[in-house]
Design a protein around this nucleic acid. Sequence first.
DNA 1: TCTTTATGGTGAG
DNA 2: TCACCCTAAAGAT
Length: 263
Amino acid sequence: MPEGHTIHRLAKDLNRSLRPGPVQASSPQGPFATEARQLDGLLLERAHAYGKHLFLDFADGPTVHIHLGLIGKMRPKEPGTGIEGAIRLRLESDDALWDLTGPMTCALIDPADVADITASLGPDPLRRGARREEFVDRLGRRSIPLSAALLDQSVIAGIGNVYRSEFCYLVGIKPSTPAKTVRVEAAEQIWDLAVDQLRLGVKLNRIVTRTPSEVGTTAGRIDEDNRLYVYKREGEPCHRCGTEIRLSEIAKRKSWHCPTCQK
DNA sequence: TCTTTATGGTGAG
DNA sequence: TCACCCTAAAGAT
């Protein structure tokens, strides 16, 4: 479930559980075996995230660049767990074990590569120093639909298909609205939303856009089927006005909105 | 036991 | 614009 919040949360968890190491690295699946051997036994300097990109810096060694893509997962396992599934990279310390499966990217890179990657990205609302004006400016230059621009990682880094629909709903704008016609105040509102929502996403390790009182909890647990306003809810009534939520396709991905609440 | 879907992105034409 | 990459769980039959 990889949008930006997932990757930043991963970086946090990896820092906490694998640092400083030394870290044992292996690639049970095979394709990354040579690279894993290069990492084996090194100290993890730090894990950090930029948008949906995860970087693991090893002391006196390379950086591992991981992008989970649509189906990739990096999951903690109980130390001693056997090999199940197609594990591209396994990282182990004395008391932690992480398995990476199905990543779009898993490669060894150097600092220049890291710079190239981050330079290609728009501001990341989860990073300190990210500038709202930068986002507003980049959004204002795009004639594509707002919902498409929010998916464009060079406009804003870390937003994915869930957040884009939810943000359009929360600001009350139809997803197909050309990005450049969105008022500056609304663009600023979207950025502020992104900062708040992704931070909450990191904290909860899941996307929850509805307010706590709306979501409801059972014994302190979040009601999983009640976390979002529009995503994957086509045909169901809007939580606010009751109108049926509509599904459309924008930028080759599904997009949901309420035709009444979003004009 | 199939087929489909998924919170993503690249490269060729 | 399209084909394609990666994996696993959910849904359909």
